[in-house]
Design a protein around this nucleic acid. Structure first.
Lengths: 194, 194
DNA sequence: CCTACCGATCGGTAGG
DNA sequence: CCTACCGATCGGTAGG
C-alpha cells in the first residue's frame, strides 16, 4: 500500500512556504529589495521554480497581502461583534491590531503597509475589498465609542487618524525594546478616549 | 564684456533641479521605482550626467531628505519657540506639519516617510540628526500641553502615536478631495486634546 | 555635461 | 520542480 500525498496538498504546502518566507523578506528588505532568487533560496528551490507556483513576483506580493488580511479579519470581527463594553471592546481591538502589525513572525500586514504602492493596480482590487472589510470593523467600533460618549468624533477622518497612529508604529516599534504590546495598547486607548 | 556665471552657481541650480525633480519622482514611484534615466530626462540631461552632481543615486535620496528637513525645521522651531497659548501653538504645529507632508509640491518629507528603509545605513546618520531635531520640537510642544492639562501623557510613546496619526495621512489624504488641511488640523487637534 | 559603454542583476521562460 | 538561458534594464564610469 503506497502513501501518495495528493499533488494539490504538496503544492499547497510549498505555496504556503513561499508566501511565508516572502512575507518575511518583503518586510525586512521591501518588495523591490527582494529578488526571486532570495525567495527561492529561502525555501530551498532554484531561482526559476517559484514561477511554477505563481505567475509573477507581483502575484506573490498580492498573495502575501491577501493572506495577512484573511488571517486577521476573523479575530477583529469576533471582537467587534462581541458583547464587551465599548471601552474594553476598543482596547481589545487595538490590542489585536497591534498583534498583527508588530508581533514577531507577523509580517503580512507590515508588507501591506510598507509596500502598497508596489502592488500593480490590477492586483489591488481584490485586496482593496478585504481592506474595506477591515476598515468597516473599525468604523463600527468607533461609532459605538461615539455613542458611549468616549470619543468626540466618529468621522472617517477620525478613524483614519486613529488607525494611522497605530499603523505607524510599524516604523518605530521594536519588540523587546521599550514597552510591551499590552502597554502600548493601554497608552493608545488612554490617549484616544476621553 | 562676457557674462560668465560662476560654475558654482550653475552647479547649484542644476543640483537643486535634480533634487527637486527627484523628490517628485521618488514620491510618486518610490526610490526603487525611479531610475537615474527618469531623473535625467526630467531635467533634460543624458543618463550619465546626474553623476556629475552626485556620486550615486543614494546620495540623491539623502539630499532629498536633508533638503526636506532643513526647509521645514525653521517654521516649526519658530512656532514652538513662540508665545502662542498651548492649544493654539499645538494647532499651528500640526498645521505646519500637515503642510510639509501633504501640500502639493512638498514631496521631500513624504519621501522620507515612504523610503526611509531605502537609504543606506551609512547615509542615515546625517538625516537622523535632523530628524532628532524635528522630534525634539514636538516633544517640547507636547510637554507644554501636558503642563497645561490638555493631554494625558507626554511620554515618547504619546509623541510617536500623535506624529504617526498625522504622518500616516500621507497614505490616504488627497488634496482637493475630502477635507482641507485646515479642517484636518482642527479635527486632529480636537481628537488628541482633552 | 555628453558619448559610448560595461558588468551585473533581474524577472521570467522553454523544455524536460 | 530543475537546467539552462534570454532579453531588458539598471547604476555607474572613462574619456573627452
Amino acid at each position: 500500500m503506497t502513501t501518495i500525498s495528493p499533488p494539490s496538498v504538496i503544492d499547497g504546502n510549498r505555496r504556503a512556504d513561499l508566501i511565508r518566507v516572502s512575507a518575511r523578506l518583503f518586510r525586512d528588505r521591501g518588495y523591490d529589495g527582494t529578488t526571486i532568487r532570495d525567495i527561492a533560496d529561502a525555501v530551498g528551490m532554484r531561482s526559476g521554480s517559484p514561477f511554477y507556483h505563481f505567475k509573477s513576483k507581483q502575484e506573490i506580493l498580492a498573495a502575501v497581502m491577501e493572506e495577512g488580511l484573511l488571517s486577521c479579519l476573523p479575530a477583529v470581527e469576533r471582537i467587534v461583534g462581541g458583547e464587551l463594553p465599548p471601552r474594553q471592546k476598543f482596547q481589545a481591538l487595538v490590542r489585536a491590531h497591534l498583534e498583527t502589525v508588530l508581533a514577531e513572525g507577523h509580517d503580512f500586514i507590515p508588507v501591506l503597509l510598507y509596500d502598497w504602492r508596489a502592488l500593480s493596480p490590477g492586483l489591488r482590487e481584490g485586496i482593496v475589498a478585504l481592506r474595506d472589510r477591515y476598515d468597516r470593523v473599525w468604523q463600527v467600533a468607533i461609532t459605538e465609542l461615539k455613542q458611549a460618549g468616549l470619543i468626540k468624533s466618529d468621522s472617517k477622518v477620525a478613524r483614519l487618524l486613529l488607525m494611522g497612529a497605530i499603523n505607524f508604529s510599524v516604523q518605530w516599534y521594536q519588540p523587546g525594546k521599550g514597552c510591551t504590546l499590552d502597554e502600548l495598547a493601554e497608552e493608545a486607548v488612554g490617549m484616544f478616549l476621553l
